[in-house]
Design a protein around this nucleic acid. Sequence first.
DNA 1: AGGCTAAACGGACCGCGGTCCGGTTTCTAT
DNA 2: ATAGAAACCGGACCGCGGTCCGTTTAGCCT
Lengths: 204, 204
Amino acid sequence: MSDHHLLPLLGAPPPERRDAARNRERLLDAAKELVERDGAPAVTMDAVAHAAGVGKGTLFRRFESREGLMAAVLDHSETEWQAQVMSGEPPLGPGADPWERMLAFGRTRLETTLLHAELIREAGRSGARASGAYSFTATHVRYLLTQLHVDGDVPLLAVAILAPLELPILEQVSLDGFPIDRFYDGWVDLVRRIVSPGGAADRT
Amino acid sequence: MSDHHLLPLLGAPPPERRDAARNRERLLDAAKELVERDGAPAVTMDAVAHAAGVGKGTLFRRFESREGLMAAVLDHSETEWQAQVMSGEPPLGPGADPWERMLAFGRTRLETTLLHAELIREAGRSGARASGAYSFTATHVRYLLTQLHVDGDVPLLAVAILAPLELPILEQVSLDGFPIDRFYDGWVDLVRRIVSPGGAADRT
DNA sequence: AGGCTAAACGGACCGCGGTCCGGTTTCTAT
DNA sequence: ATAGAAACCGGACCGCGGTCCGTTTAGCCT
């Protein structure tokens, strides 16, 4: 009789040790500060480790890689926007009709992506994929499409709606010389065509 | 009387010196071979320079960066596909009706992107932007949209059609578990919605 | 041919991301 | 309280991308 765990620890891997958690916090704070001060591309891993008063090995064990660290910082920055979408004021948050919400979603998503462009770029694959950032937007768009009674392969249509808002495409487009407002108008047109193939008369 | 240039050299910067051209060739060949043998991610700049029997400095002067080199290799690989589009057999090349050509374009573009995935990834920004690769596809899609009498902002609609076919989006989608064929069907549906908002009855 | 200049060459050198391993700290069981 | 093991810590170390500068070479002009 020695295996009396206080909690079943349902499925979760053993929790983080106290010092480990403390260091993760310190590292994340240091990283955020350095990114804000010097810009993401100029931040080196040694600098972050040193600023946090911690060894480099610790930094890499916590965040896997430089990209992983940047993804963590990014994730933190995106949280506020996600909160707005889930429970903020009506044009973007719940309350407005689905079409209005879609428009607000597009515009703010575009702005947020541009705002965090540096971080997203530095985060590489870790930025778009994991960290829930992408899957959150995908889920939301699928939800809105359903509300709009769109027929067809909703998950894939959601991908098509989101793709032009991803940073790599935005970068290509902007160095082709499209002003941002025109691009947004184009995106709205795209969504309109996707949503109303027969021609239901929704518009702003 | 000493300034008798054989040709006016209209606007072109002074041509490449003979040894420079020779070394560029050697470097590109070496790079292609190493990429094919070991896979793009495993190829180091030192290895390429050494295999070409050339100093590292030369390699970097010719191709700017590792990404630039990879972009050059990629560009070479894409040439064949571009030739097919411009002057190949009818479903893809000229001769078929625009809708058929669009479908063939989408499928082959999808396959080509997947085939060169490693190289595109390693080429980073240089891969998508420059090297004409992207601008070629954009021009072609704009042309097809015009042939299909699409109304609206054609350049932006072309972007929307191309975006889901870009590697970053393909990667996100494929680790979401979508099989490739279903993805292609979704893309066709997308294009159909974009092309016929009133409902002209084109289909395969 | 011979000389002059601009361009190309090459490899020593640097900084950064990432790994590794001997020493230290936290947690648990007795 | 204490002993033992697991997890964590830190910084020396490595490989690779990229730069720099003294030296060599190609093209041109007399």
